[in-house]
Design a protein around this nucleic acid. Structure first.
Ligand SMILES: [Mn+2]
Ligand SMILES: [Mn+2]
Ligand SMILES: [Zn+2]
Ligand SMILES: [Zn+2]
Lengths: 168, 168
DNA sequence: GCATGAATTGAGAAGTCATCTCATTCGCTC
DNA sequence: GAGCGAATGAGATGACTTCTCAATTCATGC
């Protein structure tokens, strides 16, 4: 289902575009390629900046429009990651995110058991699941150790956004 | 831990405020009360509008500031619900959300098994969880039936935002 | 290859949600 | 009730996203 390399993803995009009477433009290919080359969980802004280092100029409007399209086509996924804007990543295999409130590190985790329980939950509610996001915010191992070392003194640079979004 | 009625929540707020050298203002009480009286998953804007029907004027700035504070104090939780803004709700007992992409209905579900698996996942990653949100988007029972009835004709009014945010 | 026409882009305005600044007001303590 | 520091309101500002429309580009058929 999900592409496992860029070439496959590009074929999948071309198929989606022609099936829907849309055009395969250099901008669309460049944005898809940028995601595969740089990886991670970039925002629209980060993708635009990454593209600006290449030979092809792509406007912000096109970046946003294309990201929507690539999500729609199943080539990307979109999540919030506890910040005030959207993050995109290539849709390889589904996973959930552990987000460190202090350093911002993102740990990707997989749990088929949780997925199964989620489907069960939906079934019981008569709900047809189409997608889901599980985000856990907290402290990564490194930050836990640093806090332990510092004692109570300096709590380091906590990420305001992450703290705010997922208030306990 | 979490309050089970408004009076208890107010006491909890007063305790939090005095402990932190903050003041108990009519605005803060009004916002907390609004959440308990109206329930649901309102946005900051919805809360401001709800308050505007009462005798006390509260500015948008104060609404936003107070919601942050109430989340910090553990009296509210904050989530995105697949839309481009934050939603707040009183923090009674933790639950997850099923969000209908078509009609916007929010179904609250509880799964201790999933919570346990999440803790296990975090432990394995050396991660200390502080909070989490699990949001599943899809189609509620009513919408599934309506779509089945309509055949392929009218797919009804799908919620753009929900569709966009949690792309599969 | 080249004309044709619809899809797409870029520029910039506009919109939404959230935060910030600072003068004024208000709780709290004495 | 005076005094002081915290909190509010008004409005500017900012971050992110969407919209509008003229200009451009891609696909299709000659
Ligand atoms: Mn990821
Ligand atoms: Mn809820
Ligand atoms: Zn960390
Ligand atoms: Zn529905």
């Amino acid at each position: 289902m999900a592409a496992s390399n860029y070439e496959e993803a590009e074929r999948q995009l071309r198929r989606y575009l022609s099936k829907n009477g849309l055009r395969c433009t250099v901008e669309r290919l460049a944005i898809l390629k940028s995601l595969w080359e740089n990886g991670g969980h970039p925002s629209a802004e980060m993708i635009a900046q990454s593209l600006s280092k290449g030979p092809l100029y792509v406007s912000r409007a096109t970046v946003y429009r294309t990201l929507d399209l690539l999500v729609e086509a199943g080539l990307l996924t979109c999540s919030n990651l506890g910040e005030g804007h959207r993050h995109y990543e290539i849709n390889v295999d589904h996973h959930d995110h552990l987000i460190c409130r202090r350093c911002g590190k993102i740990i990707e985790v997989r749990s088929p058991e949780i997925e199964t329980l989620q489907r069960k939950l939906c079934k019981e509610a008569g709900f047809e699941p189409l997608s889901h996001t599980l985000e856990i915010t907290g402290l990564c191992g490194a930050c836990r150790r640093e806090i332990a070392d510092d004692g109570e003194s300096d709590n380091g640079a906590w990420r305001r956004s992450a703290v705010r979004q997922h208030g306990e």
